[in-house]
Design a protein around this nucleic acid. Structure first.
Lengths: 335, 335
DNA sequence: CTGAAAGCGCTTACAG
DNA sequence: CTGAAAGCGCTTACAG
């Protein structure tokens, strides 16, 4: 008397095969569109109908175990994963990967004291992307588990996002030089984990200065506290009239320090940030900055990642111009 | 002549068993500390040594397939995953889950057009936490795959983070009322996806007003543009002397509007934000806000999540006071 | 065109 | 205390 049509346990391919009156092999062929198999339209339809009726979903574990390959790309996220830009980049990466048949997953707080081997006990990605460097023991584990590894380093040759960091610095400098400033400052971040991003940005500023025959930028670091005020004085003493900041948060700190030290922005010192965070437009004066859309770079990045693990990728997808100046009140023409 | 000790393929439990001179069952018992098995210390040591020598790591897929259970908790992240607080919460959640033997994974951009069934093809979590609501079809799929589902709703009874949102509003209001303000305004976010957070915060403000016999707060929404300026005027016309903002970004927009409309903060209007983002301390005037450390709530949250899927959890862990006022220049005693 | 069978690597009753 | 064997759910040569 029990209705067997909808068993309580999860439906398997054997259930679908029985329901459709075919073998499990045929079910697999139909559901995976296996190349080289010719399935009559009628059989195909029956299998599909049975799968739908049974709400069949293949077991991820069984697929991976049998095929020996996983379609997961795992990003090991360090602790500083906060910015709007990072979030947007991850969003676009995730989208891009799924369009290419992969699943993008993020494991937060990978830098904490947990053992990574606990992680491999629960998930076997095809590729692990790391930001913080791994120790030799962890690298050995990855190797032993047969998991590909991609250390995400900016600033290395060919790294799509790294190249664009250069560009951001260049755009900042071009804007300031275009306004007639001849002596530039650079406000470095005090956060060591950001150096991989900051270094190429600064390099871009330096390149533009050199190209225009200007002296190299005066680089100062502005840790929280009174350092920003001292930096303001030091730049002015050095004849600097415009400062490019590593990012908007650093620039905001500069604006706050300016108010306290009676330096008028932009008249005494022009300031340009980078990233265009929400608070930039709301600052006093409103912050000139560089808007950067990582979405434009990600497709090329993802394609190169997939290529590195031997997966097919569609066409590369062109990387369009990623950054532009958003001119606001914190910069003006040099006097 | 070939050295067989270090095969190129990934080591399996059979390799370990051979190397240690025991059966695969014994390997499994030792490596999993299976309860109810008594393994002589010598055997145990041999197995452990072999596993280390072979750099053995169990196959996640095989474990899940055989045991029928996964130790993965997957968060389906919607598109708005940017804030510092969100990042910090995820960090702590991840840590908390791994301490309890689970792996916390995040799939960004789950709201996009991809089919979720593609996701279940690659990973089978024990539990999926969603923020954006799922459609009936997706719920049915989850059910069919035997994956537990927890819609993350704030403001419902007992939801740890929801309760704390109330508290944030309460703390804002207590601060303003304590300074002598008798007529409060509330600056609502214009972002609809944030309403689940904003609603309980506003409720907390309302409660405190009621408890002090004060009128309900004057709620205004301040979308980007000129709305903030209009709101400033409306509040002043209504006799409001202090405004609690949904968060620091909304508060920053208020400060910017005040500068443009000649309203002096805090003399004409006091403003308190929430979240203590980096830009808050750097604003002009520096923004009074409520600092909220999600870390203090997360252990209780994670424990309740694990309980909901029938997993053992250690002691609940006390939820300590999560929020406090950071008094800066944007609030002052009422005149 | 379709099916029976092997096997991916594990865990766990079940015998000894 | 330890081992042989079954079986989780799939995919894929291999026969027919």
């Amino acid at each position: 008397m029990t209705r067997k049509k909808t068993p309580d346990r999860r439906a398997t391919s054997a259930d679908v095969a029985r329901e459709a009156g075919v073998s499990r092999a045929t079910v697999s062929f139909v559901l995976n569109d296996t190349p080289g198999q010719t399935i009559p339209e009628d059989t195909r339809r029956r299998v599909l109908a049975a799968a739908t009726a049974l709400r069949y979903q293949p077991s991820a574990a069984a697929r991976v175990l049998r095929s020996g390959r996983s379609d997961i790309v795992l990003l090991l996220m360090p602790g500083w994963s906060s910015g709007e830009l990072v979030a947007r980049t991850l969003d676009v990466m995730s989208q891009e990967f799924s369009e290419r048949g992969m699943t993008f997953l993020v494991h937060p707080r990978a830098g904490s004291n947990r053992h990574l081997s606990d992680l491999w006990r629960d998930v076997t990605p095809a590729l692990v992307i790391t930001v913080d460097p791994l120790g030799p023991h962890e690298l050995s584990q990855l190797d032993a588990a047969g998991i590909a590894h991609l250390p995400f380093r900016l600033g290395e040759d060919g790294a799509a996002l790294g190249a664009s960091q250069d560009t951001i610095g260049r755009i900042q400098a071009e804007h300031l030089v275009g306004l007639g400033h001849r002596r530039l400052g650079y406000a470095m971040t005090a956060d060591a984990s950001l150096i991989p991003f900051a270094e190429p940005r600064l390099r871009g500023v330096g390149q533009v200065c050199a190209e225009h025959g200007l002296p190299a930028p005066v680089v100062l670091s502005t840790p929280p506290g009174t350092a920003a005020g001292q930096a303001m004085r030091a730049w002015r003493a050095a004849g600097v009239t415009a400062v490019a900041a590593y990012n908007d948060e650093v620039a905001l700190a500069l604006l706050a320090a300016a108010r306290q030290t009676q330096v008028v922005v932009p008249d005494d010192l022009a300031v340009i940030g980078a990233d265009d965070i929400g608070a930039a437009a709301l600052a006093s004066p409103p912050l000139t900055t560089v808007r950067f859309d990582p979405a434009t770079l990600v497709p090329a990045l993802v394609a190169s990642i997939l290529r590195s693990i031997g997966r097919d990728t569609g066409e590369p997808g062109p990387a369009t111009a990623p950054a532009e100046v958003v001119a606001r009140g914190s910069t003006r023409r040099a006097r």
